[in-house]
Design a protein around this nucleic acid. Structure first.
Lengths: 189, 189
DNA sequence: TAAAATCCTTGACATTTATCAAGACTTGCT
DNA sequence: AGCAAGTCTTGATAAATGTCAAGGATTTTA
């Protein structure tokens, strides 16, 4: 149950076994069905999740009430609403599983205590933040610098699992086009 | 010269005067003309900057060679290419001043030594990362969930200084439309 | 300070993408 | 297993945005 998260942390920092087990002991398993809402607009996020298996869609409701997908997360990834988690403000986004998903979850209080007590965990968190920020920068650049077909090609080159694992509707929302447009773009690939 | 950065750090963390001055002593002043390239595609970023006065455009070259603006930074903001700075990989982005600009700059080695030595500086960095990540998430959501006119209105509500201080060409690139389209959108505001 | 360069706007037109509708197909639920 | 719901595709059309061109305004630079 803890092997994936253990490897992930070891990949980021050199932690002695005692510290590592101390950190892991604060994570509780959470299993959900598909379409489970982890967090919805207006909620305050009190939990940070590590995905053991499954998939989470993070989305936003546009002015027509349609879902706009900000990001998609899979096993081996860390996920929380950073704004709401760090400042305890209401979330503007929805977090929903799109497959049966199993998490390791840690509450906010435990999380920040660990950060203060275990320097290697702080260091791991810093690296996760840097990588998440970097990923979001790439995503902004894909929207400012590419048209829809190039964004689709970019996903095919860099995140191919998204195209094979998820429905066209969700892929379209992630690429930032209507499902009809995605259907037509596929013919041009 | 250090008053803005001093207030910024104090706003983020409680630091004793000695630690604060120790941290500040590692920052060197850098003044540039407008259109100075701080970093270009392919460069490895070895410096983190705090803007004392002025403005920096971070952009990307699209497949036509046009500039796509990922973000704009002003006095009081921290700026570095996080990917290149943290992993010492070549930058994919350009960083250019668009006004005469004065910075406080710190080299990568000093930066990471300070992070290790001064817990309050680590804590400040963590908060800056969280805020930067949060800002980039808002920007992704503006592209996935809004059309061009709504993005322009969003900037007017939330970053009005961008509209009053910068050229239409740069605003257009930030909004993600051609200058001609921006010119027409202004008539609909 | 004057020439050169760049910027801003507007018009005409092309291209991209969205919307609406319908039918075939797939999936989920009981 | 079978029905209901949702998905995917395609066509027709509308709306949004890009491109090219040109002229006037502004800014830069020599």
């Amino acid at each position: 149950m803890y092997s994936l998260i253990e490897n992930d942390i070891k990949k980021l920092v050199n932690a002695d076994e005692e510290s590592l087990q101390f950190v892991l002991s604060h994570f509780k398993e959470l299993k959900t069905k598909r379409n489970h809402l982890l967090l919805k607009e207006g909620d305050v996020c009190r939990t940070c999740y590590f995905i053991n298996k499954g998939c989470v869609q993070v989305y936003y409701l546009d002015k027509n009430g349609d879902e706009a997908t900000r990001d998609l997360y899979f096993e081996g990834q860390w996920i929380t609403n950073i704004d709401s988690f760090s400042k305890q403000e209401p979330s503007k986004e929805f977090y929903r599983t799109i497959e049966p998903t199993s998490f390791l979850a840690i509450g906010r209080d435990n999380f920040f205590q660990l950060i203060g007590k275990v320097p290697q965990f702080m260091e791991a968190y810093r690296q996760i933040l840097e990588a998440s920020y970097s990923h979001s920068i790439n995503r902004i650049n894909s929207f400012t610098a590419m048209d829809a077909l190039d964004r689709l090609k970019w996903v095919r080159e860099n995140q191919a699992h998204i195209l094979t694992r998820l429905s066209s509707k969700i892929i379209a929302s992630y690429i930032g086009v209507s499902p009809e447009t995605l259907s037509r773009l596929k013919n041009k690939l």
